[in-house]
Design a binder for these strands. Sequence first.
DNA 1: AAAGGACCCAACCGCCGACGG
DNA 2: TCCGTCGGCGGTTGGGTCCTT
Length: 318
Amino acid sequence: MGDKMNSSSSNSCIDMSCGEEDDQMMNMTMDDLRRGPWTVEEDFALINYIAHHGEGRWNSLARCAGLKRTGKSCRLRWLNYLRPDVRRGNITLEEQLLILELHSRWGNRWSKIAQHLPGRTDNEIKNYWRTRVQKHAKQMKCDVNSKQFKDTMRYLWMPRLAERIQAASTTKTTTTRDPSTLTTTTNTLNQNNMDHIGTNQLVMPQSYSEVGNNQIKPSYAKENSGTIAVSPVSDLTDCYHPIYQTQNQDFLVQNNNQIGDDFDGSLISPSGYFNEEMDFETMVEENNQCLGSNSGDFSDSLWNVEDILFLQQQFNNM
DNA sequence: AAAGGACCCAACCGCCGACGG
DNA sequence: TCCGTCGGCGGTTGGGTCCTT
C-alpha cells in the first residue's frame, strides 16, 4: 500500500486549492455522494491528499480531496485500509490470545482492544470475533456472553492457545534454529521467565503478566505445580483432545482459589459453574462435538523473543 | 461443473460525547 | 444553555469468495 504514495503519483495528485474545490463541492447533495466499494482512483486521491495535508477534518478533507464521499467514509477507508501501518493477513496465535484476554476484560471495546494490537483495526478485531468466536458460541448453542461460553473460552481455548504458542516456540527453538547459535538474550529471557514461574508454567502469559503498572495476570496461567501438556494443534477451532482433558481438569481444581481475581464477577468461580450447571467433562464433550469438524486456518506463527518483547511493549503501554 | 450454503470482510448506519459558536 | 458539527465507536449488512454436495 505504501508504494501507492511514490513520487510517480504526483502527476495525478489531487492537490488543487481547497477553496476552489470547496466551491465545486459546495452544491453537492446527498445524491451526489458515492457509496460502496472504493475505487483505485478514490484511494489514490485520499492517500495523496493525506500525504500532503495530513489527517483530520474529514468532511472538509473529503471535499478538498475531490472525493464524493462523506468524511466518515474517508476516515474509515483510511483508518481501516489505506493507512500505511495497517497490518493485514491472518490473526496470529499471539494476537488471538491477546484478543480473547482483552475481550474478557473489556468486552466489546474493539477500539480499546485494537490499541494493543498494533496495525490491527477495531473493525478487523470485531470481524474476527464475530466470525471466529461467536461462531463457536452459536455452535455450542449458547450466548457468546453466557457464563458457559466464557468459561469454555477461558479454561479451554485460552490455555490451549497458550500451549500452542509455547509448543510453536519450542518447535522453533529446536527445529528452526541451530542451538549453538541461540543468543544469550534468548536464553536469558526465557530463563528469567521460567525462574519466575517454575518449570510448569506457561512462558507466554508470564512474559506479559508482570510488565508495566497495569499488571495482567491471565487467570488461565497455571500457577501451581503440575504439568501442562503442550498440544501441537490446539487453538480455537481444533477439536479438544481427550488426552488434555484430565490435565485441564487438574488445572481447574488446583487453581480454584486463584482464578478470577483479575476479572469481573461474571467470569469467576468455575467450580461453582461446573458443579451446578454442567460438569467439565460434559462441557468438553459438547465442545468436541461442536468444534470437531472445523479446521483452523490460523497462521502458525511462532513464539519467539521478538514476540515476547512485542507483548511486553504492548502491556507496557496499557 | 454447477448450485447452494457458509464464511469473510469492507463499508455503512445510528448513536453518542466532545467541542465550539 | 442550546444547537450544530465532527469524530469515534459498536452493530449490522451486502456482496464477493470459498467450500461442500
